[in-house]
Every structure is written in C-alpha cells, then in structure tokens.
Design a protein around this nucleic acid. Structure first.
Length: 417
RNA sequence: GCGGCUCUGGUGAAGUGGUUAACACGUCGGAUUGUGGCUCCGAUAUGCGUGGGUUCGAUUCCCACGAGUCGCCCCA
C-alpha cells in the first residue's frame, strides 16, 4: 500500500512534536549538567561491528537486524543500538587521546526487526549515554543516577530501579557452569524456551516469566556466591554510592542483560503500567567491548532509554505537554482591493517577529473571522477598502472582542503591548 | 518467529444477506448591508482494511493477505 508507512514505523505528527521536544530539551539540559557531550554516529555501520560488538548468538544479531549488501558489495546494517557505534567512533577518532574519561550521549533512531507492539517499533528512538575509560564504580553510579533523574524529572512516578551484577570473564563462567548444572537437574520442569537457554544462555532462565515462579527457582544458585573479589567490591561500591545519593533501588539477582558485552553492573528502570514493554531504560558496564572491537582494553559504562516508551508513560500519567500554540495575529482581508495591503501587513508583522497568518483562499470576511478564531490568534487584523484608503488597520482583540482602528505603523506596538 | 482479539467517513461509532449505511463531533457553506466564538439551516462514506470465494445478491458468511492491539519471545 503506497499510503502506508512500512510496518513498525510511525510518523510523528505536529501535535506530538511537543513531547519529543520536551524530551530532547531535558536530555540536553541534564547531560550538560553531568558533563556529557553529544555525539552523532552514522545510522548504518558495517555488519561486522554489531556481530562482534553485540555478539553472535544474541537475538538482536541473529534475527532482528536490518542487513543488506550495498552496491559496493559491503554488508551493511542499520544500527540496532548505538553503543557499538559510539565505541567505534571513540576508537576511530582517538577520543581517548586527550581525556581520561570520555563522556558522551546520543539521541537517534535504531532499527530492529521485531514484531511491532505498543512500545515496540521497528524504527524507534533511544537516548543513551556512554562513559569510557574509567573502572571506578562511581561511574556506574553516575550513569544510573543520570538515567534515574532523567525519568524522575519528567514527573514519572512508580518507576522501579533494579540493579544486579553479572560478573566478569573471571567469575561469570563459574556461575554459568553452576547454573547449567542446577537447571539440568530440573530440566523436566523447564519450559521449552528455557531448555533451549540451558545451552545457549542459562542466565536468561533466571528471568523467564513462565519458570520464574516455580519452586526450584528459589534455590537456584545466586551470583553472589560466585563473584570474584573485584566484582564483589565493585558491586558493593555501586550500592554504597547509590544509597549515598538517596536513590531507591532494588537488587534483582534475576536481572540479566541480553547483549553479550555487559559485565559487572547491570540495571534496568521499569515502568510497570506499560505492560509487556515496561523496560524504559537499561544498561550497565561493558568492560570487554572496546577490546572486542579492536581497541586497548578500556572499561566503560552506559545505558539507553526508549523514547517512545517514555512518551507512552507520560501519556498514561497525563504528563504529555499540550501542542504548542500557534499564532499571535490573523490578518483578515475584505475584498480584492485589500489583498496586497494585507499581504504587506502580514510580511511586516513577521519581520517584527510577530507570528501571523492569513487566508489565501479569498474566503468571505465571515469565513476568515472564523478561521482567525480557530487559529488561536489573539488578534484579528481587519483590512478592507476603508483601511486601505486611510492607511489604517482595524485591530480586534479576539478574547475581549474590543476593536479599534489605528494607523498601520502602530500595529506592531499595539500587538506587543 | 508463535498464539488471541480487532479492522465501517477526518474522529467516536450504530447497523443489515437485498431499495437512500443511523447518530454525534469535526470540516465546509449559509442565516440581506465589512467581523469570530452561542444558535439555526444545509452539505459532507457510490463506501464498510485489501484480494478472492459462497450466493440471484455481501459491508454483513468463508478463506487468504495486510494493518493494529494484547500476550509469548526479545528489549529500550
């Protein structure tokens, strides 16, 4: 259908723009406050970047990417997320050169071939933040705080912050092994999905909605028992700092991340009323990614937030901003003779920074007045033969219905006052 | 990728196997002399997601596809 946007895409119409602008404004303010700078990376990258960065075997890479071959026979992929690109840009442009800690943020569309649903589109928008070059848990805390404050500053309530640690290459394999053993013993009780996860990614069994409630889940090995000293201390550090900052968080040992690059801290902010797509922001530490992509081993933390989901949440709470109001003055022209005079008036007003409109369809005076009222304009500026002859304008205040004729030259002052 | 539900005008919607597809909002026009918001009058789907099929006849029944929605999955 020629008149339908592709499945999973949406037009953002004029009456929705206010919400987007609000988010973008908040994002830029807050990032400025925290000392993060904006970066814009290409919408598409070499497919290889995502395969390496996100990890083969993840759903995102295996079945959700928009991948195509370009005319030069390169495999190209529309970015399904922005962290890999930011890391690539960090390395390519040697952003590490002048700074210890590089702090970046981005806003843009991402692409994932998913089954569309409310809060899940194929082209969707994310705001994200990345801090590269520091392993101290203070960075984790700063990032989590930034995400948390962002959502709270919008007025959202009922947000839940969950944190966890997923270990590092030194200790995660041990935990993974333990889990595999434990769940293999329970294999008969597992759902079909989880039986598959058993070999692919046993950590995911922990947050399975079907098996999550079953008895054996209670006694499943906890990651605390496997953490190496470094990971344990790191996690303790994050918790201490978040507590110090007065943030209310819950430790969720079942929280795992779907992308391979995460290490240590993982977190998610949920807004339950959104239903199935309740994760509104999520992220964590990814100390292994930069090396994976070819740089020197560099610790890093980041998160991404889904803007459509946030907008949905704002809507649910009645916090969506009203569409911005339009125009100050509406010029009404009576008869042929006044057309040029009216057009000149219109232009002069705009040059004086007064927003103005008029009807170009030569409608009746009455119809034009209706239009003026509908436009939300505060003033109707009526010009007809008399006004042309005397170089005046009849200024009618549409809110009070008061009107008077004044010389054209005085119109801007009259309106501004 | 899997399953459930839904699909009538710009919007909210009523409705029937068969003459003009309610009603409301909106939009447009009008109610004598250059003026809006109230009121009144009039107009506004040859069309019922798309394509097939059943039928003498389908918007109403059946099938497929599409889109939306909810859940699974995944994730932001």
């Amino acid at each position: 259908m020629l008149t339908n946007a592709p499945r999973g895409t949406k037009d953002i119409l004029p009456d929705q723009i206010a919400g987007w602008l609000l988010l973008e404004k908040k994002i830029r303010e807050l990032c400025g406050l925290y000392g993060y700078e904006e970066i814009r990376t290409p919408t598409f990258e070499h497919t290889e970047l995502f395969q390496r960065g996100i990890g083969e075997g993840t759903d995102v890479v295996d079945k959700e990417m928009y991948t195509f071959t370009d005319r030069g026979d390169r495999s190209i992929t529309l970015r399904p997320e922005n962290t890999a690109s930011v890391v690539r840009a960090y390395l390519q442009n040697k952003l590490y050169a002048n700074a210890g800690l590089v702090k970046l943020f981005y806003v843009g569309s991402m692409f994932r071939y998913d089954r569309p649903q409310a809060g899940r589109l194929r082209e969707f928008h994310q705001f994200g933040v990345e801090a590269l070059g520091e392993k101290n848990p203070a960075v984790d805390a700063e990032i989590i705080l930034l995400a948390w404050e962002f959502l709270n500053s919008l007025g959202l309530t009922d947000l839940k912050l969950k944190i966890n640690t997923v270990g590092c290459p030194a200790c995660r394999p041990i935990y993974r092994q333990k889990l595999t053993e434990y769940f293999t013993a329970e294999a008969d009780e597992l759902c079909g999905d989880c039986r598959r996860r058993l070999t692919k990614n046993p950590l995911r069994i922990l947050d399975c909605k079907v098996d999550g409630l079953k008895d054996f889940m209670e006694d499943a090995p906890k990651i605390e028992t496997c953490l190496c000293d470094e990971c344990r201390e790191h996690f303790a550090g994050v918790k201490t700092l978040l507590t110090a900052a007065g943030v209310d968080f819950a430790i969720d040992p079942r929280l795992v991340r779907g992308l391979d690059y995460y290490t240590k801290t993982a977190f998610e902010i949920q807004y339950a009323p959104l239903g199935a797509q309740s994760a509104v922001a999520g992220g964590g530490r990814y100390d292994g990614l930069i090396r994976e992509i070819g740089g020197d081993p560099t610790p890093a933390v980041g998160f991404a937030a889904g803007l459509e989901r946030i907008l949905l949440a704002l809507d649910l709470q009645g916090l969506s901003p009203a569409p911005t109001k339009k125009i100050t003055a509406f010029v009404v022209a009576g008869g042929e003779a006044a057309q040029v005079y009216a057009f000149k008036l219109l232009t002069d007003l705009r040059r004086q920074n007064i927003s103005a409109a008029m009807d170009f369809g030569r409608k009746s005076l009455k119809a034009q007045m209706k239009q003026a009222a509908k436009s939300g304009a505060k003033f109707a500026l009526i010009v007809g033969e008399d006004e042309v002859a005397n170089s005046t304008v009849t200024v009618k205040n549409l809110e009070t219905s008061a009107q008077e004729s004044i010389p054209v030259a005085q119109v801007p002052d009259k309106i501004i006052s």
